[in-house]
């Protein structure tokens, strides 16, 4: 083992170096691209939001009841969507990573569909089902139930677009850890839930948080799908991104940027947590690799 480490270490030489001017030129170009595409826009959001001072900023955010409601609505929809995606993600990942059954590959492919489908189409399909001319439209209105143009449809459409996020993070982690510990637990007499909470959960914990972070960011930021099912009723069904668009249409740019700055801040927090988790997961994986 020790010998092998020395050999690989000596082989891990630096790659053939590019000449210095190539390095500087390419690095400058790449950093320029990142700055132009990502850096300037982020800076611009905060600059425009705080342009007229913090008091105007706060008034823009909390002075308008419709804007307040949009913040409340987004904060109430995202946790529900995340919860549903987590339950699905854990159960689908368990079935796919631990068992072999016919149709397994098809199931894997179908789960990726929402990533390829346009958000607008994702919203449209719910209109086709729950709308007045849709499959269930008449039945719903006869029973005095409203799904479309209400919070349930916002949750459903957001669930559609965020479906793959948790499960995609969990499958590779479950596959890395293998089933030995779980088999040991079961053969020693643990029941399914004991095995899950004591063995599986601690192993997938970080990946689960990672998936939740990504899922939450998408749930809070989704636009196209919720735009279609919201029915655009002011103050009732506007989530934060929809409210940003409405303020933009009303030429209320300071208010639009104030709300956008909150969403940008959330995105930056998401990236921070994500980077931290990636580091921890790399450590955890290295530890797992050593112990086997």
């Amino acid at each position: 083992m020790g010998n092998k480490t020395i050999i690989t270490a000596s082989l891990k030489k630096k790659r053939p170096e590019d000449s210095e001017w190539v390095r500087y030129l390419l690095t400058t170009m790449a950093l320029g691209v990142v700055f132009l595409i990502i850096g300037i826009p982020v800076f611009h959001v905060f600059f425009r939001a705080f342009e007229k001072g913090p008091m105007v900023y706060l008034d823009n955010l909390f002075g308008n009841p419709n804007t307040r409601h949009s913040i409340f609505l987004t904060l109430s929809i995202a946790p529900r969507v995340v919860f549903l995606s987590v339950v699905f993600g854990v159960s689908a990942a368990w079935a796919i990573a631990r068992f072999r059954f016919p149709g397994r590959t098809i199931l894997l492919t179908l789960m990726d569909l929402p990533l390829a489908v346009s958000p607008v189409v994702a919203g449209l399909v719910f209109v086709l089902i729950f709308g007045m001319q849709g499959w269930m439209g008449e039945w719903l209105s006869a029973n005095n139930m409203q799904i479309l143009f209400g919070t349930p449809s916002l949750v459903l459409a957001t669930c559609f677009v965020t479906l793959p996020y948790v499960v995609r993070e969990l499958i590779p982690v479950l596959e890395t850890y293998g089933e030995e510990e779980e088999l040991a637990a079961v053969s020693l007499g643990a029941n399914g839930w004991q095995m899950f909470w004591r063995i599986t959960m601690p192993n997938i914990r970080l990946a689960l948080v990672y998936g939740i972070i990504l899922c939450n960011a998408r749930a809070m930021g989704e636009f196209g799908a919720v735009y279609v099912v919201s029915g655009r009723i002011s103050g009732l069904n506007d989530t934060m991104p929809l409210r940003v668009e409405k303020l933009f249409q009303e030429y209320d740019m300071p208010a639009a940027f104030a709300l956008a700055s909150v969403l940008t801040f959330l995105a930056l927090v998401t990236l921070g947590v994500k980077t931290y988790l990636e580091k921890s997961m790399a450590h955890q994986k290295a530890d797992a690799g050593e112990s086997t």
């Binding site: 990502i38 930021g221 668009e245 994500k274």
Partner: peptide, 18 residues
């Protein structure tokens, strides 16, 4: 870390800023 910003930032914000 910043490379992933477009995945975390709501598209409406991107449109507004651009």
């Amino acid at each position: 870390a910043m490379i992933d910003l477009p995945l975390a930032l709501p598209t409406a914000v991107a449109g507004l800023v651009y």
